[in-house]
């Protein structure tokens, strides 16, 4: 039976891991330890703002991660064209994540799926909750409203050829207070492809809730400083005890 996945999201700014340990950016720390643990998958995101860095620095990191970690690697951030897909795949990514450009030019989803297969195309959706309780998709690092509803955009992305949806709650991001499972469930129930949920996990129970309440196929966490030698194992033991079918 297919296991529920726990995914580590690593965010890079100009090739340097965004999170730090004791305020020192120590990216070697990350890729040396990841493979030894029972993490199921890695997502590497380039969050460098336009004009603020050299793309090559991110590519170097992806290449390094790919050569050290024998688990699936998805990469994204600033992906605009099929050539960007090719570049990331050629240096070791297994999947490519697209967000802003998919909204701007939805044909990119289809072009990439036709060339690389649907399993390669992950459409990432950033959603914000309005005061009236409704949700809206935002692009460009969560700054630009699109007028689209996340569940409708997810459905459309699937139709265009996306293989997976990654949904992130903008206001939960970094708060460690749990996922927005109302949003997650809504998106998950709108599509038939796997849904990765992001934004807000702060304790092991949040992962369990992501699966049970949010109907996730995979739960993501960016807070890598939580992850010391034993933490992925203990997170997974916790989930197993809560009845979630995970890979130990």
């Amino acid at each position: 039976m297919l296991r529920k996945r726990l995914i580590t999201v690593l965010t890079f700014n100009d090739g340097v891991l965004f999170r730090t340990k004791l305020f020192n950016p120590d990216y070697r720390y990350t890729h040396n330890f990841i493979d030894a643990w029972s993490i199921d998958e890695i997502v590497a995101l380039d969050v460098t703002r336009p004009g603020q860095g050299d793309k090559e620095n991110f590519y170097k990191m992806v290449k390094h991660l790919a050569s050290k970690c024998f688990v699936p690697l998805a990469a994204g951030g600033g992906v605009r064209t099929v050539d960007d897909f090719k570049k990331l795949l050629s240096i070791g990514a297994d999947k490519v994540i697209i967000n802003t450009e998919a909204v701007r030019r939805p044909e990119l989803i289809t072009e990439a799926a036709n060339l690389f297969g649907a399993q390669c195309v992950v459409v990432s959706i950033d959603a914000k909750k309005h005061e009236d309780g409704s949700y809206e998709v935002f692009t460009e690092f969560g700054t630009k409203p699109t007028g689209m509803k996340p569940e409708e955009w997810a459905k459309k992305a699937q139709k265009l050829g996306a293989g997976e949806i990654m949904i992130t709650s903008i206001e939960r991001d970094g708060f460690l207070e749990g996922y927005d499972n109302q949003l997650n469930k809504m998106v998950s129930e709108a599509v038939d492809i796997p849904v990765l949920v992001c934004g807000g996990a702060g304790k092991w129970q949040d992962f369990v809730d992501g699966f049970e309440k949010g109907k996730a196929s995979a739960v993501c966490t960016t807070n890598i400083y939580h992850f010391t030698e034993t933490s992925i194992k203990s997170a997974k033991s916790y989930m197993k005890n809560a009845g979630i079918n995970v890979r130990l």
């Binding site: 296991r3 996945r5 399993q119 293989g163 038939d192 796997p194 196929s217």
Partner: peptide, 9 residues
């Protein structure tokens, strides 16, 4: 069961 089949099995 969603398709694509993605994950550890």
């Amino acid at each position: 069961l969603r398709v694509p089949h993605v994950g550890w099995d």
